[in-house]
Design a protein around this nucleic acid. Sequence first.
DNA 1: TAGATATATAACTATATAGCTATATAAAAG
DNA 2: CTTTTATATAGCTATATAGTTATATATCTA
Lengths: 112, 112
Amino acid sequence: MPNYEPDLSTTFSALGDPTRRGVLARLGQGAATVSELSQPYDMALPSFMQHLKVLEKSGLVHSHKAGRSRIYELQPERIREAEQWLQQQRQLWEQRLDRLDDYLLQMKEERE
Amino acid sequence: MPNYEPDLSTTFSALGDPTRRGVLARLGQGAATVSELSQPYDMALPSFMQHLKVLEKSGLVHSHKAGRSRIYELQPERIREAEQWLQQQRQLWEQRLDRLDDYLLQMKEERE
DNA sequence: TAGATATATAACTATATAGCTATATAAAAG
DNA sequence: CTTTTATATAGCTATATAGTTATATATCTA
């Protein structure tokens, strides 16, 4: 199996849920507790906490206990990795199209 | 193919599998048939084709029938969307850190 | 037209994911 | 010391996902 990249898999899978993307967007504004993060969502707390666990397992966020609260913060490295993979794919695609354009242009010139 | 409504969730979910990312990377080099795409993978063909269906439903690829073959090609728009979402999150995060740096610097200057 | 090729579909199993309620624990507040 | 608050865990259901084999269909090739 070529391109075996387990980190990217858990990162992209974690990103594939609107609740989890919402949490990441919120954490972009700064660290927050479980209750602060869950407040906008109409969802039982254990269900919401499951999403937080998925985010933490993927490495997209990090948490620590402070008194009876748990504080989550963004961990931007995994976001950068995912972004770079996408950027690379897009760039390879665009370079190929450029080479195709060059080729077609050359064909055209040779016919003239 | 019917009108699917691809969004970030289906895009990121589709990206969360190494086989599917491998297919996307391969399609970056140019269009290919099902058998060409499946060749590197040690997986039963129906299982592999399921991955192609997931990619097509997400809008990351497009396909058409040519004789008895089906030809897949990359559809870069969904990749760009995903890339832009990640870029935006990262930029918001970095801007916030910059503002925090400014604030800390100002505090330091005011103490001197 | 018969056979080979390239998908496509059906039917099934196993595991993962996303949600719930109920209950437990740990720390803060009174 | 009791109550409230803020998670944390247990245990359950339903659906989704990822894989399999067997079989069907459509299109080329001889």
